[in-house]
Amino acid sequence: AKLCDFGLARSLPSGCSHLDSIQLGTGGTPAYQAPEVLKRLPINLKVDLYGFAITLWEMYTALLPWNECTLEQMATRVALYNDRPPIPSV
């Protein structure tokens, strides 16, 4: 596996544990963005884990995350209802 396109990546400043998501903007693919980013709340390293988890889900299911939803529906489900893509039964 290869990871690429780190054009939106940012380094966490020394001694800083949270960043203001409004100052960073909302660049990136919304389906992989953590609820904190969608809500424009302060963010930390956990947002990277959320995106990685969605990537693992995509690899496991061979489906695109939230492909049955519009962008607004996906954002509402993730940010307001704390919904996640379902893991299919084997």
Rank of each mutant, 00 (worst) to 15 (best):
A1E: 06
A1Y: 05
K2W: 11
K2S: 09
L3I: 14
C4W: 13
F6T: 07
F6P: 03
F6C: 06
F6R: 04
G7Q: 08
G7D: 10
G7P: 09
L8W: 10
A9Q: 07
A9N: 03
R10F: 01
R10P: 02
R10W: 04
R10M: 06
R10C: 12
P13Y: 11
P13S: 10
P13W: 10
G15I: 10
G15V: 09
C16N: 01
C16R: 14
C16P: 01
C16E: 14
H18Y: 14
H18N: 11
L19K: 08
D20M: 07
S21C: 12
S21A: 15
I22F: 02
I22A: 14
I22Y: 08
Q23Y: 12
Q23G: 10
G25I: 13
G25V: 12
T26R: 14
G27M: 09
T29S: 14
P30T: 08
A31D: 10
A31K: 02
Y32D: 05
Y32T: 05
A34M: 05
P35C: 06
E36L: 03
V37Y: 02
V37M: 09
V37A: 05
L38I: 08
K39L: 14
K39S: 04
K39F: 00
K39H: 05
K39G: 01
R40P: 01
R40E: 11
P42T: 09
I43V: 15
N44T: 04
N44I: 03
L45T: 10
L45W: 06
K46I: 02
V47A: 04
V47D: 02
V47S: 04
D48N: 14
D48Y: 06
Y50G: 06
Y50W: 15
G51E: 02
G51F: 06
F52D: 08
F52K: 07
F52P: 01
F52V: 12
I54S: 10
I54Q: 12
T55H: 04
T55D: 04
L56W: 04
L56Q: 13
L56C: 15
L56P: 03
W57S: 10
W57V: 07
W57A: 08
W57N: 12
E58S: 09
E58I: 01
M59H: 09
M59P: 01
Y60M: 14
Y60H: 12
Y60L: 15
T61M: 11
T61F: 12
T61N: 10
T61Y: 11
A62L: 15
A62Y: 09
L63I: 01
L63E: 15
L64H: 13
L64P: 02
P65M: 05
P65Y: 03
P65Q: 06
P65H: 05
W66C: 06
N67S: 15
E68Y: 09
E68G: 13
C69H: 13
C69T: 11
T70P: 06
T70A: 08
E72G: 08
E72C: 05
Q73I: 05
A75Y: 00
A75D: 02
T76M: 03
T76K: 04
V78W: 01
A79E: 02
L80C: 08
L80F: 03
L80T: 01
Y81H: 13
N82K: 11
N82G: 00
N82W: 00
D83Q: 05
D83N: 01
R84F: 00
R84N: 00
R84L: 02
R84Q: 07
P85F: 01
P85D: 00
P85A: 00
P86M: 00
P86E: 03
I87Q: 00
P88M: 00
S89Q: 07
S89F: 00
